[in-house]
Design a protein around this nucleic acid. Structure first.
Lengths: 214, 214
DNA sequence: TGATAATTTGACCGGTTGGTAAACATTATG
DNA sequence: CATAATGTTTACCAACCGGTCAAATTATCA
């Protein structure tokens, strides 16, 4: 039989499991740094240490590879937002959301860049995810934030733009890493920059720049 | 003569002026939405309404096109930061810097995406600009901010991360426009979103989320 | 106007890219 | 161990891509 994947068999082979894993890992590396159009199957094959036709045996097209990767990553990517707890203390929740997002930028920068590339180029492959599940999740959390503001537990503000600004400030350290390093210079650009960022962002979101706020 | 551009002539022809303008405008459109590798000369030629060899008559390579574009755009892109005035009122300065950056995201989203694409993919073509002129400018302004903090005019904070967070939050509305629109939905995603963003960011940077701050 | 330079185009080239076909190798299973 | 299913590779193709070339066209100006 020439047909790939579980077309006939019910369960996935051990080899399938392993190889698809290796391919998606390689695809993440390549897509994240080159974007979809800028990436080639050969590059991914190289990184994965496999031949190009072998890759295409597991994923019939480049698009299929990309789709599978996005699906797999999107879920965990939204975990921090899902963890946002309506019952918790507002300040604590926001603070730990920022911290978690920043940790993700530090620990999973490739995933961040994968999405950044995709969205930057008009989200041609994930627009459905954006207007569907993502919007729904954000709407839900925006309601929570609005309730907190109404109850006077945090300042009155637009919850959507609050979420945007948390995304922007935290993902910046993954997506614009090269620029951050360049500007900070060799001495400041060590791993300590994430702790500095965390400290700064906490102050910013809790007190802003008004003196004596920290 | 077959040699392009002002190789022999001193002044640039009117035609040269016009065509190079048209090409760079088209290049901005294409590079901003596809990144360097993802863009083709044919695409740019299409948008410019010229033939491919004609484009290559004015810019010998795709790289030359990209370089010329970046050089032209980088300068005006940094204008808002340059306008940052050490003598001015700190709060006013920061507030108008944010406003100006947000206006640039609204009025020149393609320029923002051009840089975002470039930096996201490791800044292979502009790294020198980053560690050189950009770092120098930021260092200079960081000193100004630090002085303000020391004088107690604004809260003590890391000036670099402050600048990063202003960049991140404002450019987000250009770079991640598709996502912003998707999340806000049709009713909220009108042009008013920039005013909402401005209001939110002003509050954020001046007072944070502490109640009664606005 | 005519000569000369500047501009534009169609045909083309070598290398790359996404993807296929088929032969070959390996593994699972009766 | 036979044999069918699964996995891998080599060779290949057509489309695309960056770039060249020479010929044709248009603008400039003495």
């Amino acid at each position: 039989m020439v047909l790939p994947r579980a077309a006939k068999t019910q369960r996935r082979t051990r080899i399938q499991e392993e190889k698809e894993e290796r391919i998606l890992e390689a695809a993440l590396e390549v897509f994240a740094t080159n974007g979809f159009r800028g990436s080639t199957i050969d590059q991914i094959a190289d990184v994965a240490g496999m031949s190009k036709p072998n890759l295409l045996y597991y994923f019939r097209t480049k698009e299929a590879m990309h789709r599978a990767l996005i699906e797999r990553v999107l879920d965990t990517w939204l975990d921090p937002l899902r963890a946002f707890d309506a019952e918790g203390n507002p300040v604590t929740e926001i603070r730990s959301y920022i911290r978690r997002k920043l940790e993700m930028s530090r620990d999973f920068p490739r995933e961040s860049r994968l999405f950044a590339n995709e969205i930057l180029q008009g989200a041609p492959h994930i627009e459905d995810e954006l207007v569907g599940p993502l919007k729904q999740l954000v709407d839900e959390k925006a309601q929570v934030i609005r309730a907190w503001a109404k109850a006077g537990k945090i300042a009155k503000c637009d919850p959507y733009h609050l979420i945007f600004s948390i995304w922007a400030t935290t993902q910046h350290y993954a997506d614009f890493d090269v620029q951050v390093r360049a500007v900070l210079g060799e001495d400041l650009a060590g791993e300590g920059r994430f702790e500095d960022a965390a400290r700064f962002l906490e102050q910013l979101f809790l007190h802003g720049l008004t003196p004596q706020g920290g």
